[in-house]
Design a protein around this nucleic acid. Structure first.
Length: 446
RNA sequence: GGCGGUGUAGCCAAGCGGUAAGGCGAUGGUCUGCAAAACCAUUAUACCCCGGUUCGAAUCCGGGCACCGCCUCCA
């Protein structure tokens, strides 16, 4: 089997043969959440995409080191804390724990490291010192800024020149900055804001520096893959590159993977529109495998439209699939070869899942191929649904006694050939979300 | 305005130079009191439009049109 892995690299906008820095090892850094509110479907998709990528890398025998950070120092956290009359660290701690729990509920494995900004202040201060020393940063009234013009490759990830960014960006006039596009590495604390001591006075890190500091700490100056949502390309990832490469003189991340965003009922999901769907609410109604499969039947770079209709369709497809699970020893297939080759081609989970559906629907499961099926499910993180007797499309508790009574009553009507009454009782069952199926052994429901 | 993306059946979605995966839905048949389920069969001569390259294009190139994202905090 061909084992070459191709990855679409956002840095070059090309699909490239993946070559790791250290043979058979992959280092991966993914931008995690800012923990100031409950995690939402955007976090879910990103986590699921990278979870399946890491699982696959492991499956093909690579040793992975996966780091995902928490941004736990941030203006929004401070604002939220003020609103609720609590300490910022109480807010961030609460949502950090929630995030970890939500990702578990979605069947995502923990990254190897989940560092927080607050635990890496010395590393951040040292990095800023280095940047200043190399004249890529400057202090100004207690703030420290990055000198964008000095970094000649600024704009290479988002494919823009400094001039075009400048002419297309509206920035607040900040008298502390030497140049409009310069961004903060360190911000002086205002009264009543949390702060850390630094050579430039009391303050806190800027938004982008944390990822440069933490990726360097855990993965080194040059690592294999950096991931995150598409929306982070500019300015966040662009700034990370500038901060990191100006110090090391080395390429920061070799490959950049950006996942597509979520729409809700065909409308952009965003804080300003206010249509954020949070994970806990979603999981109350739909099984985690339904979210996983919905996301993974789309290529990771395309947008996904989330709606109850789509989720119900996935649920229905699993329900249909469950009816095809009989073992037929005489059959054989090349399922494994097919799905692995799909994944080797820029993690094409949609194509791989297509093979999976076909494989099961063709009714060609043997005991041997069931093992292949389990390997695939493990890689996609969609284990368990085949043996789960509950209906994945309906997580509402069902009153069994009520249904049994209804069936008895209906069967009585049927034996009396009172079809009108029988049909009415079936309609009532449907109102309860139950389908009554008559077969040779009697009436069953689902 | 700058940068980027997308346009494939009723809906969703793979495919990215060799003759249209998969899912939902729909239709016909068998079965059934009628249904459902199950089983069998059908469901894009066609990939936004117009040119071009090629033996061959949904796939490459040029030009349109439409929609979307980033450029402000966001995964």
């Amino acid at each position: 089997m061909n084992k070459d892995l191709y990855i679409f690299n956002s840095l070059t906008s090309k699909k490239e043969l993946f070559k790791s820095i250290i043979p058979n090892q992959v280092s991966l850094y993914v931008c995690g959440p800012t923990v100031y509110s409950s995690s939402h479907m955007g976090h879910a998709r990103s986590a699921i995409v990278f979870d399946s990528i890491v699982r696959f890398l492991k499956y093909i025998g690579l040793k992975t080191k996966y780091v995902r950070n928490f941004t736990d120092i941030d203006d929004k956290i401070i604002a939220r804390a003020n609103e609720e009359g609590r300490k910022p660290e109480e807010i961030s701690e609460k949502y950090k724990l929630e995030y970890i729990q939500d990702m578990k509920s979605l069947g995502c494995n923990d990254p190897d490291h989940q560092p927080s900004v607050s635990e890496n202040i010395p590393e951040i201060i040292n990095l800023i010192k280095d940047i200043i020393e190399k004249k890529f940063g400057y202090e100004s009234n207690g703030d420290v800024y990055f000198n964008v013009q000095k970094f000649k490759e600024y704009g290479k990830l988002s494919n823009q020149s400094i001039d075009s960014i400048l002419s297309n960006t509206r920035l607040e006039i900040n008298p502390n900055k030497n140049y409009e596009l310069d961004f903060a590495l360190w911000k002086e604390a205002k009264p009543n804001e949390p702060y850390w001591e630094s050579p430039w006075g009391n303050g806190r890190p800027g938004w982008h520096i944390e990822c440069s500091a933490m990726s360097r700490k855990y993965l080194g100056e040059n690592f294999d893959i950096h991931g995150g949502g598409r929306d982070l390309i500019f300015p966040h990832h662009e700034n990370e590159i500038a901060q990191s490469e100006c110090i090391s003189g080395k390429k920061f991340a070799n490959y950049w993977i950006h996942n597509g965003l979520i729409n809700i009922n065909k409308e952009k999901m965003s804080k300003s529109i206010g249509n954020i769907v949070n994970i806990k609410e979603g999981l109350k109604v739909w099984d985690k495998n339904i979210f996983r499969i919905l996301f993974l039947t789309h290529h990771y770079r395309t947008p996904v439209d989330l709606s109850n209709k789509k989720l119900a369709e996935v649920g229905k497809s699993l329900l249909n699939l469950k009816k095809k699970l009989e073992i037929n020893e005489s059959s054989s297939s090349n399922f494994k070869e097919l799905w692995v080759s799909a994944m080797l081609d820029d993690f094409n989970t949609a194509k791989a899942l297509g093979y999976y559906f076909k494989f099961i629907n063709d009714g060609k499961l043997s005991n041997k191929s069931t093992v292949e099926l389990e390997e695939f499910e493990e890689t996609m993180g969609i284990s368990g649904w085949r043996n789960d007797i509950s209906n994945p499309t309906d997580k509402n508790p069902i009153n069994k006694e009520e249904i049994e009574e209804l069936i008895i009553e209906r069967n009585k009507a049927r034996s009396e050939k009172d079809w009108v009454k029988a049909d009415k009782l079936r309609e009532r069952a449907e109102e309860l979300g139950i389908k009554l199926l008559d077969n040779d052994e009697g009436t069953i429901w689902e």
